[in-house]
Each structure stands twice: as structure tokens, then as C-alpha cells.
Design a binder for these strands. Structure first.
Lengths: 336, 336
DNA sequence: TTGAAAGCGCTAACAG
DNA sequence: CTGTTAGCGCTTTCAA
């Protein structure tokens, strides 16, 4: 192997420059409180003068932490990467991690149970893991969760005692989106759902049902759009083909709403005049289409940041609630 | 910090079990040749009996390698994540890395020059970096390339002597796609390009120009679709609004082709009867739209694998060519 | 072919 | 509040 030079300046040199011992430098680097102001200042100066960056291998070896966090992404990356909602989640995670001493290790999860990734994680090569977007069928999850602290993006499929997650109130989001439609006078309301193997998709559907029931309305068509653009378009086509045309549609993601929009346009229907359409996410898609989408916002970037924060707190031994439910909010634009 | 237990079995215990010294175990683990068959066998047995897994931090500290590779993704993640082409690239990179001793560190690159990431990478905290999809405006690139070996996805904006990259022949791809259109009898051929800050986008445009020039045809409209879905749709609308309607369009990515398809449908134009449309990538999008896209395939997953392979080889001190140009190929479906 | 010995750069008791 | 002292688990000369 070619030798890679590590950071040339060591803690020893910083200590010398600052006129203190290694330990004191270590203390300021690690934010220990018990350092005198003068020492703190001298060390800080030496650090920035010398551009000192701690060697993570040494640190990790001595402290018995890896300082690494795994970001586990499900195999079917097409859907994952195709949705700006996830881009925002990952950006948020990245942003929070960047402010910490941790680095993010990316793993694209292969459901193969003998998987190298699973054993890598199980062997304590990371301090914790963030798992985004999993399905009922993802079996490797449990093995990871047995080995290291995990924070989930979205309520996990089977909730266990020591599960931590960040989510929004999807039932409520679905309900309020639908209530808005009802309040605007719509009566034949269909929905395009996500895959019913995912809690978020199930919950939004539940919300839609609840709102209709509360208003005494008969539920319209329910079609699975699989959380994809094309799936949304197909679901919309099936809805239109199925008989009575709805006067409004609740799509459980903006991506699917976009697909639906195209299907509606292809069918010669105007939005919102003929069919009102409401999305979910308030991702960049919402404003990039025409008409701009009315949608239920969720704070994706913040959710990502919060996921990382929760994990970092847990690793630091700070007690935190098992879940963090972030607020949603209706954003009214043109489509409904 | 909560203590994370590392793999409990150390090289010392393996050595004891095998009746040899630490050094011999280390030699076996690292594949050194100078080990007697009997020692080799004893050590191998001990390793598997004890489920020994070397501690990366210790290994890294002693060997002065990090065993980590950075995956650097440009800030504007919306575009990155929105394109299935990149999903395939990342999957390929991930797959190859998973077969090695390296792990992938994900960095979302912030153009802020004082960036923590840049200094982290510069300080030798990774052995090498893979940089996907960069623009002429991405200034942090040079600083990374100065610090560690880099492999680029696509020819870098400014090619330096020691730059390594994997790419396809985009000029040729653009030319052949356009030649196909010409061969089908089309004469008024427009193009939807990617941002002209990216080599791939520039080259595909060049190929389009070359094919038209060779056929003695007047170039049609050229509109930038920014490598996004909506950008493609807008570019198509501009082309349609600009006067003479083209009888064929070369879109420099499938994502933009999809946008164009929608704009065409909205304008009441049939594909391919009124306007033929050809894409680029052969991403999953190509078959998920209707009509299915005729497109210029590039082997995205393999490109990702190759990027990782090149970097791993370089890090191993293996001499390799500076670039690897992967083949493209026309895939004829329905849209042209 | 093998073992002994010397660190890699850092953290973490433990005294003081 | 600070320095001293031991290692963390592994690789790597250097001799034998």
C-alpha cells in the first residue's frame, strides 16, 4: 500500500507550542471544563496556528469509540434517491454530523442476511446507526439494532422498547390535508397512497379515512402510487378509469402528486378547477410544477438533523425521549 | 460517552491460541507470504474459532492508513438525488467498496472554502476520495485533490496530469444518438442540454453538433434543461414556443427527456409521430414512461464500480491508466 | 520464517 | 486545574 501521510502535527507539538502537557491539550480538544482560561487560550491559539486536527484512529483506539455513525439506506435506491424528500433528510443528517466529531459511513443495505455490512456493523465498527426508510420486509434491521444504538427515520415497523425515531404525525397530516379539501367544498375525494408496508404511508391513509368519516363522506378511490412519480401517475390513471371522477385527490407525497398532475393533464383535466390536488412533504417539487402544489409540509431537513442529534445524544449518554414528532403544516398554493 | 465494546478478541489472543507471536498473526491477516504452512494453518484456525476481526482503529493507527474513502457529493443534492443515474453510480461504488477493506465516508460538499470537510480530508483522514458530478464552479475540488488521491466521476473540468476518472465518450454518445435520429429521416433536430458548466453536458452537445454538421443539416434549437425533470420540461416548452417545431429532440439525459415528454403531451404532440425523442443514460426512467424512451445507454452501475476499483488500485500502488472510458450503446424503444 | 521491541497519536485514570 | 503514566490493538523494523 502507498503510504498516506497523516496529519503531520500531533497533540505533542501543540502541547509544546502552548507550553502545557498533552493532557491539557486533550482536555480542550474534548471540551472538558476543567481547564484554566489562560491554558485554554494558549492551547486554542496553538491549535489554530498549527492547524491541528486530531488523528481519529488514535483517538478512537484510546477512547474505544469509533466516532463513526452508519447511515443505512435500503437497497432499492431508485426510490430512495428519486425522492427529494430523502435528499433533504440526508442533507440534514449530514449537516448535524458535520458539526460533531463523527463521520458518516454510508451503507446501502442489501437484504442478503449474510451481508458483510450487517456483520461489520455488528462487530462494533460504528458507534451507532441511522436507518432511513425501511419496510416491513427488511429483515436485517433487527440485527443492526441488536448490535448498536439506532435511530430510525419514521416510526419503525415493529416498535420495540428501546427504539428511537423521529417522525411527523402522519395520521394528523393526512387528516388535515383531507379536511382542507373538504372545507373547500370537495365531496368526492380519492387518495394516492404510498406502499402499505411503510408506516408513514399507512398513517396518512388512516388520516384521510378519519377526515372523511368525520365529515360523513363516502371514501373515494384508494390507489397505491408506491411513493414514486410514475406510480403516482399510474394510480391517477386507475382512479380516473375506475368510474366516478373525483373532485379532489390527496396524494401522500409530492412526488406522487407530480405524477398525478401529469396524468391529469394528459386526461385533459384542469387542476384545481376540475380536480383539486394536494400533496405531502412540501419538497422542492411542490414549487417546480405548474400549478404549484398545495401540500402538507414536513420539515425534512430538520428531521434529518434531529435524527443525527438524537443519536449523538444517546451516544453521549444523554437521556432523551424515544421519539421526536416534528410539526406539519398546510401550505396553500395553487393546486387545491 | 457510553462505552462501545470493540470486538473483544485481540490479535494477542489469536496468537496465544495458535501458539505463535503477534507478528505472525499480523502477517497472516495481511496476506504476507513469508509464513510457514503450518503456522498459516494454525493461525487461520484460531482466527475462525475465535471469530477474530481486526480492530480498524489500531490497524489504521499503526499502518498509517485510514482504510476510509470519501464519497464527495456536491451541495446541490436535489439534482444529485433526483437523478436515478447517480443512484446507480453510488450503488456501484458501494458494491465495490463493500468487497474491500475500505469503508465509504459520505460528505456533502459545501462550497464554503473554510469548510470542515475540506480540512478533514486534507488532514489525511481518508486515504482517497471519489468525487461525483462537479461543476466548473466547485472550487473546493482542487484542495481535496492536492491532499489525497482522487478519482472523478466524469472527466474533470480542468484536467490535471495526475487526475484519474471514469467516463463514457459523451461526444460520441451525443453524435450517435443524433445520427440515429437523422437516419430515421428527421431533419429539424433540437437538443435539450445539461448545464454547460459540466463536461458531460458540453460534450453531448458537441456530439449533436458534429452529427448535424456531418449530415449538412442546420442545427435546431438548443435549450438548457439543467439535467432536471422540470428543466427538461421547460426547455421543451421554450423550444416549442420558439418558432419552427422540431421533428426530433435529443435530450442529454433521461430525466430531462421525461420532462420533455410531459411538455410535449401537454402541447398535444404525439411521440414519436409528431416529435421523436431520444434520451441519454438508459436509467430506470426510460422504461417507466410511456412511450418508453429510446436512449443512449451508459453503464452507470459499472461506472461506479470502476471508480472505486481505480481508487483502490491506486491506493495499493498499482499502476493504472489515468482514465477508463466505458462503452455506450443505443437502446431503441418507442420514443424514436 | 519467526519473535522481540518499539512505537502509531491519543485518552484516561491517578496523583498532586 | 494540571502533569505523569499507562496503555488502546496493531504493524513493522530488526535480529535471530
Amino acid at each position: 500500500m502507498t503510504d498516506r501521510l497523516p496529519s503531520p502535527v500531533t497533540i505533542e507539538e501543540v502541547a509544546a507550542a502552548a507550553g502545557v502537557s498533552r493532557s491539557t491539550v486533550s482536555r480542550v480538544v474534548n471540551g472538558a471544563t476543567s481547564v484554566s482560561p489562560s491554558a485554554l487560550e494558549a492551547v486554542s491559539k496553538a491549535i489554530s496556528d498549527l492547524h491541528y486536527v486530531p488523528n481519529r484512529a488514535a483517538r478512537s483506539l484510546a477512547s474505544r469509540q469509533t466516532l463513526a455513525i452508519a447511515l443505512v439506506v435500503p437497497e432499492e435506491t431508485t426510490r430512495f434517491f428519486g425522492d427529494p424528500f430523502f435528499a433533504a433528510i440526508v442533507s440534514g443528517i449530514n449537516a448535524r454530523i458535520a458539526r460533531s466529531d463523527y463521520v458518516l459511513n454510508l451503507f446501502i443495505a442489501n437484504s442478503d442476511p449474510g451481508d458483510k455490512m450487517t456483520s461489520y456493523l455488528s462487530r462494533g465498527n460504528v458507534d451507532g446507526a441511522i436507518i432511513v426508510s425501511h419496510h416491513t420486509s427488511d429483515t436485517f434491521i433487527d440485527r443492526i439494532a441488536d448490535a448498536v444504538p439506532v435511530v430510525y427515520g419514521g416510526r419503525p415497523v415493529k416498535l420495540r422498547d428501546d427504539d428511537y425515531y423521529v417522525d411527523v404525525d402522519n395520521v394528523r397530516g393526512g387528516r388535515e390535508a383531507t379536511e382542507y379539501l373538504i372545507g373547500r367544498g370537495h365531496r368526492r375525494i380519492a387518495t394516492i397512497t404510498g406502499p402499505q408496508t411503510m408506516p408513514a404511508a399507512m398513517d396518512r391513509l388512516t388520516g384521510w379515512r378519519e377526515a372523511l368519516a368525520a365529515a360523513g363522506l363516502t371514501p373515494g378511490a384508494v390507489e397505491n402510487g408506491n411513493f414514486t412519480d410514475e406510480g403516482g401517475a399510474e394510480a391517477m390513471r386507475r382512479i380516473l378509469a375506475s368510474g366516478e371522477r373525483p373532485d379532489a385527490v390527496f396524494a401522500a407525497s409530492d412526488l406522487m402528486a407530480r405524477g398525478a398532475l401529469h396524468a391529469l393533464a394528459a386526461a385533459g383535466l384542469r387542476v384545481p378547477e376540475d380536480v383539486a390536488l394536494i400533496g405531502f412533504d412540501d419538497s422542492p417539487i411542490a414549487t417546480s410544477v405548474s400549478p404549484a402544489l398545495t401540500t402538507m409540509r414536513q420539515p425534512s431537513f430538520l428531521q434529518g438533523e434531529e435524527m443525527a442529534s438524537m443519536l449523538i445524544d444517546r451516544l453521549a449518554g444523554i437521556a432523551i425521549p424515544n421519539s421526536r414528532i416534528m410539526p406539519t403544516g398546510l401550505v396553500v398554493r395553487e393546486s387545491a
